[in-house]
Design a protein around this nucleic acid. Structure first.
Lengths: 147, 147
DNA sequence: TCTATAGTGATAAACGATATCTATAAATGC
DNA sequence: GCATTTATAGATATCGTTTATCACTATAGA
């Protein structure tokens, strides 16, 4: 698979990140990750499966979901809950809040990191004596290009 | 179906709200709404279908999804995106931001309304020249009772 | 090298959502 | 009031998403 310079660099970083964590980035998983990197937006599991099948003949649903779970746990891939789609994270090294801006016109998904949003929600949860472990923050609307 | 005094009151309000909006709260839809009201937490579409079948013999998936779509559009029901579940809104009359605190231990879903969270995210989106039409804000963690 | 563990292949099925076509009931215009 | 349009509901099928399970293989560690 052909990767851009930028994505090649991310892949290299991901490899060392996995090594560091003692996680095995197998050829199959690497293929899945490459597909995600080549995607400019989020992709559904079955579209991902279709692409994967071009090189991995016997790939089936569990194949992609296992790979996705692997990356989700490492934080290398995020899931967009409101569209059931997945996308590679481009700055996984540092722990960060995850928020998405999803354009309903062109389908583009932009990841942003607002500490403010995270903290505001945490403060609100605290008032309800609720301890937050994970946040899902997704905004749907229209991106700059589509306006 | 037996409804608590509180839920009866909500149902009455929902009826007049529908009338006001020119929306037809048919018997079938009312049954679906009652099931949702009786639920202390969010419920999946197929669990809802099982309950619905007890009175509506020939209910099928489209039956519940149609009813759910009807209520979602009116704002009488919300969807929890991260769990694919639905719950009745208890204060639908006024337009409001929707945020959920989801306990991963007991499954309880609490709806909160923080203008701050909404506005913080909007401000962040504005910096990216993104116009927000809809927000999905869901926090997973542990509720007060389960701590 | 043996053993435990992690990863993969394969099949099936559960859960979630929608498309389509038909029939019926309600609202609207005349 | 009747015809026309529109909304609702029934029925069937299918698609998309996700997980469970079992067998097999490769890898890591004792």
């Amino acid at each position: 698979m052909v990767l851009s310079k930028q994505n090649q660099a991310i892949l290299v970083k991901a490899k060392s990140y996995c090594q560091e964590k003692g996680a095995r980035l197998t050829p199959l998983r690497e293929r899945v990750y490459e597909i995600l990197l080549n995607q400019d937006s989020a992709i559904g599991a079955y579209d991902l499966l279709d692409k994967l099948r071009k090189t991995e003949d016997n790939a089936k649903p569990p194949t992609v979901y296992r790979a996705l779970d692997f990356f989700l746990e490492l934080g290398l891939v995020h899931k967009v809950e409101s569209t059931n789609a997945f996308m590679a994270c481009h700055h996984f090294a540092s722990s960060h809040p995850v928020q998405f801006l999803i354009c309903d016109t062109c389908g583009d998904v932009q990841e942003i990191q607002s500490a403010g949003v995270k903290e505001t929600l945490e403060a609100q949860a605290e008032q309800n004596a609720f301890v937050i472990l994970r946040q899902t923050i997704e905004a749907h609307g229209v991106c700059q290009k589509c306006q």
